[in-house]
Design a protein around this nucleic acid. Structure first.
Length: 433
DNA sequence: TCTGGGGTCCTAGGACCC
DNA sequence: TCTGGGGTCCTAGGACCC
């Protein structure tokens, strides 16, 4: 048996722990630059606010409705997530963190000795009490069925935060009451094809013969079919090293100037290098992409990307920033207004298995570059991210303040709450009056 | 005016080999 | 007139997830 522990409206719930005044109100959390709705409270969902709605459209679509909007605070969400996961680990033998707000538990062997329904209810209550996070738990013989069960736990209070599918009768009942589109692994395309073939509910799909599924759909869909029929075959790998790493941003204002764009791209490359080092990896390939605003039909649209192959695999900030700058020059076009840029690193291998190149960076230089990266990582760990950066990452100084802003300062987040749990200056004050 | 960011896996088709 | 048979590797794009 597997359990899925899923935080309820995760980002909104994180905020509400420190802002109890937001309980019972429609609350949304926005993406970077306060662009789109990425999380909604139940009240916001009930109003009909869709995920992905541009924030600026909310006022038009819901005139006169008071909607609490917050900028995203990923430092807070990451820390709250870590607390939830730590609590789960204390109560389950094998935990696979699947995303910032979900974890699977492999309960193999527990079903004989434990009342799983009670176990789930107690775990949910404990996470709520210790962390303040409401969670819903689904339990079933496959991960897909556990996920489906967690939806029922969210949907109906009667389950007391935990729904268990542990018999064929319960399985069929759960599948019959769920649209196929809601099933993990069934997206819009597959759902359209299923409907065309007469399958509306998850049960319609699960009851089709396996040969039919195999003939019409790719392998992942067939695996989902197996899982719905109680045959576990989808794994989630925990703590696997990433095979590609991307850092990208949209800009609050469009960027026409090559040097500003270069500074942005330098920062993204630097972030990718730091992420690589954190997982003890190096990359062979670096990709830079830039795009203009796809929503502006009055302006010329341009989007391009280019790969650079590194002579020797690297996670050096100096080397990656340099490669990114050269790549940018090959795709940059003058006279356009850019809206978004990013850096992707791939061809990732462990940093202790680097294939050297006869004509690449020599051993001595590599050693020195690694020392520079390590020194910067040490300083930044102690004094805060990006305390030390390359000159290429600095934006021109502000003529009034003389300050040189970098990376973290160029994204809009006008409604951001404090970092209550990770910054001593932001710690919450309590008055005894 | 204003529209996010980060991943994975599979598959078909091209280019190449004998 | 008539155009084989069997492989591998790589990549772009699709589909999906959060």
């Amino acid at each position: 048996m597997f359990a899925l522990v899923d935080c309820d409206n995760c980002f909104v719930s994180c905020e509400r722990v420190f802002r109890p005044d937001l309980e019972g109100k429609p609350v949304v959390v926005l993406s970077n630059n306060d662009g789109c709705v990425v999380a909604r409270s139940n009240e916001a969902k009930a109003l009909g606010i869709k995920e992905g709605t541009p924030y600026f459209k909310l006022a038009d679509e819901f005139p006169g409705v008071k909607i609490e909007a917050l900028s995203s605070n990923y430092t807070l969400y990451g820390d709250m997530s870590a607390r939830v996961m730590a609590t789960i680990r204390m109560h389950a033998p094998k935990v696979e963190v699947y995303s910032i707000d979900e974890a699977f538990c492999d309960l193999t062997g527990m079903e004989r000795t434990t009342d799983l329904k009670l176990w789930g209810e107690q775990l949910a209550a404990r996470i709520r009490q210790w962390v303040g996070m409401p969670v819903s738990i689904g339990i079933g013989p496959t991960r897909t069925l556990a996920k489906l069960a967690s939806r029922y736990a969210k949907l109906y209070r009667g389950y007391n935060k935990c729904c268990v599918i542990d018999s064929d009768e319960k399985r069929r009942k759960a599948l019959a009451g769920m649209d196929a589109a809601r099933v993990w692994g069934i997206g819009a395309r597959t759902d359209a094809k299923l409907r065309y073939n007469g399958c509306r509910t998850a049960l319609d799909f699960a009851d089709k013969p396996q040969g039919w599924v195999r003939m019409l759909f790719p392998l992942p869909v067939e695996n989902t079919w197996r899982e719905l029929n109680g045959i576990s075959c989808i794994k989630t790998d925990e703590i696997a090293e990433k095979k590609s790493i991307c850092t990208s941003r949209s800009f609050p204002e469009m960027v026409a100037d090559r040097e500003t764009l270069r500074t942005h791209v330098s920062n993204y490359a630097s972030r990718c290098a730091a992420k690589l080092r954190r997982q003890h990896s190096v990359c062979n390939i670096l990709t830079v992409f830039i795009t203009t605003n796809p929503f502006r039909e009055d302006l010329e649209w341009y989007s391009n990307a280019i790969n650079v192959t590194l002579g020797t695999a690297s996670a050096s900030t100096v080397e990656l920033v340099s490669a990114a700058g050269q790549a940018l020059d090959r795709i940059f076009r003058d006279g356009l207004k850019y809206k978004r840029a990013g850096v992707i690193v791939s061809g990732i291998v462990p940093d202790n298995a680097v294939q050297l190149d006869l004509f690449g960076t020599d051993e001595n230089t590599r050693r020195r570059l690694n020392l520079v990266s390590k020194a910067a990582d040490d300083v930044n760990r102690r004094w805060g991210t990006e305390t030390v950066v390359l000159a290429a990452q600095q934006y021109p100084s502000d003529p009034v303040t003389g300050m040189s802003p970098h990376f973290k300062d160029v994204i809009l987040h006008n409604m951001r709450t404090p970092c209550y749990t990770t910054n001593l200056h932001d710690i919450i004050g309590v008055s005894s009056d």
